[in-house]
Design a protein around this nucleic acid. Structure first.
Lengths: 232, 232
DNA sequence: TAATTTATCAATCTAAAGATGTAAGACAAA
DNA sequence: TTTGTCTTACATCTTTAGATTGATAAATTA
């Protein structure tokens, strides 16, 4: 069963007026999409997005007035189910990474063949996320690089392994911002006992105070809820 | 100018002996790669990797004895410049994400056409990172989802925005484990001034002590080196 | 069984942290 | 000019944190 699909409506944002015209012409002539608006200003673009509710926005990410990435973030926050495809002159890995991170559904280079742009729009219009193969490879190199450093750091020697089970419990409560009294109350032991544990923790982690202990714990894989989601 | 390239040497690790045989046959007959070893055990596989130094490992990620992902991590730690391609029966987004995170250079489903596997090996052998289009899309959905939650959390109301520039400097030094004296020394101001700033920070962040302030800062986007690399 | 580790608790002391109030000079906005 | 905010600074006081030493019972390991 094939459901009815209306033509996707597209908004173009690009500070280069020539390129803007070119893309509009391309889409109008070579595809079945509607260009519902064009602008050379990111700020105006955001307003047009609110007004026309396009299905897709082609956004230049290299604009002087306002950063394209910032514009994408603002649009994403509106939760209007608008899918943004980045247009960029550069295949900078960091740019690609940040764009995908904040929710871009595609990233296409201006230097790529026009057929590739149309294909990207087709894919994104169909609900997919699309990156050209070459950019995907660049993305993953950057992605893996950013995690490799983390791995190297924590593979030196993790002093946390020397902690006893009880000390880990105490440290866990420390990383939640508890003071001695709070920890004692939660573990049903005396405050002086907590002090003993905490002092032993300091010795083992080779730190001077609780803040440093907490920082060591967080930087060396002591899972605190949030980050655990991205942990292996 | 085209440099000489010797045939890439491949090690196969898959606890399913039938599948192992099939893949070996495929590679031997349909490609120009050398299969230098096969094993159904992840642990033996790691030893074979050390011994034969293959260029590429095809690793099943769903094994009972030892998790394939764990095996990949151990191999990556050896720094032998071995490129690992995951073979999996499932297109589970979380699995794909974790595999790529720990350094897999490719991820191919067992259900995919054999030509696709050969193509993946070709790409990885050529130094690229390869994910089939369908899996790339899944990866990005997962990737974006994991960051969207972060964005939502910090979009409640970030008390950090109320801090003055100087207070941010002080907080930054706090998040590095400095005490009053350390901060005073680094900012060339008196210790009492630091106390004033710190107290104001506590007020604005609505916390009781420095540990809580540091935790608030870290959980609300206050960039400390490491994480800054992944921040927008 | 003897030795070791772990978890518990206490007393004591010093140093550091935190609360509170006050205030002067710089600077920008109204 | 006045108002307000920011940065700097000090004094005083209370509370908390941290270091050190010592001790006991239970559990583990040699």
């Amino acid at each position: 069963m094939r459901e009815f699909k209306r033509k996707s409506r597209i908004l173009l944002i690009d500070d280069n007026a020539d390129h803007l015209r070119g893309v509009k012409e391309l889409i109008t002539l070579e595809s079945s999409y509607d260009v519902v608006g064009t602008t050379t200003s990111a700020n105006i673009g955001i307003n047009l997005a609110k007004k026309y509710r396009p299905d897709i926005i082609l956004m230049d990410v290299n604009m002087p007035e306002k950063d394209g990435l910032q514009a994408i973030q603002e649009i994403e926050k509106l939760n209007l189910d608008i899918r943004v495809i980045c247009l960029s002159g550069y295949d900078d890995a960091d740019l690609i990474f940040r764009a995908m991170k904040i929710g871009a559904k595609g990233y296409v280079l201006k230097t790529m063949a026009s057929a590739q742009l149309i294909y990207a729009i087709d894919e994104v219009a169909a609900g997919k996320i699309y990156l050209p193969t070459a950019l995907t490879s660049r993305f993953f190199e950057y992605f893996q690089h950013s995690f490799k450093e983390e791995a190297n750091i924590s593979s030196e020697e993790n002093l946390l392994t020397y902690l006893t089970a009880r000390e880990e419990e105490v440290l866990d409560l420390l990383t939640q911002g508890n003071n001695y009294k709070g920890i004692a109350g939660k573990l049903f032991i005396s405050e002086t006992t907590v002090k003993t544990h905490v002092n032993n923790i300091f010795q083992k982690l080779q730190v001077n105070d609780r803040t440093q202990a907490v920082l060591y714990a967080l930087n060396n894989g002591f899972a605190n809820k949030r980050r655990a989601k991205l942990a292996v």
